[in-house]
């Protein structure tokens, strides 16, 4: 079971990295969602998987007699999911506003904050570099 999940993590991670590297903001978000899930799965597996019972101790007893499931990785994943969700919603808004502002989702054509490249950039789009300088003022 653990081997299967390990391979699954690897496949999801590979797909997410492919998406993240494709230079498109929308694809980056999908890659991010996948990567978060791959990591959560990894933490889940790192707590080991046994056919055990929920971590509840019988009434009256002080310690558990039978092996119990490890509850900590699940707490970690829960935290990671909450944080990941908050980050994701922030990223959605940020990318949407960026799209509104820059009129592109292609990361290659976002050059406003980069230093002006001498020949290439002035020939291609003199508008964006000069507007960047104006904004710097």
């Amino acid at each position: 079971m653990e081997t299967v999940l390990a391979f699954l993590c690897g496949i999801i991670a590979a797909a997410s990295i492919y998406l993240m590297l494709s230079g498109n903001l929308i694809r980056f978000i999908f890659g991010l969602v996948l990567a978060t899930n791959a990591v959560n799965l990894l933490i889940f597996v790192s707590g080991r998987l046994f056919p055990t019972r929920p971590p509840l101790i019988a009434e009256g007893a002080k310690v558990a007699t039978k092996p119990l499931a490890n509850a900590l990785p699940q707490a970690l994943i829960l935290t990671a999911i909450v944080i990941g969700f908050a980050l994701l919603s922030f990223v959605f808004i940020l990318f949407y506003r960026t799209y509104q502002c820059l009129q592109t989702v292609d990361t290659e054509s976002m050059r406003v904050a980069e230093p002006p490249e001498e020949e290439e950039n002035t020939a291609k789009d003199p508008g964006s570099t000069s507007s960047a300088q104006e904004e710097a003022k």
């Binding site: 900590l72 970690l76 960026t98 502002c101 820059l102």
Partner: peptide, 30 residues
């Protein structure tokens, strides 16, 4: 404009590093 451009790049790479960080945590805990 330029803050969105700089911000997007900053957010992307930092999110990735965060994911690496928690991957490391998972492996170390395991």
């Amino acid at each position: 404009k330029k803050q969105f451009d700089g911000g997007v790049k900053y957010v992307m790479i930092n999110l990735f590093s965060t994911l690496l960080f928690i991957t490391g945590i998972g492996l170390l805990y395991g």
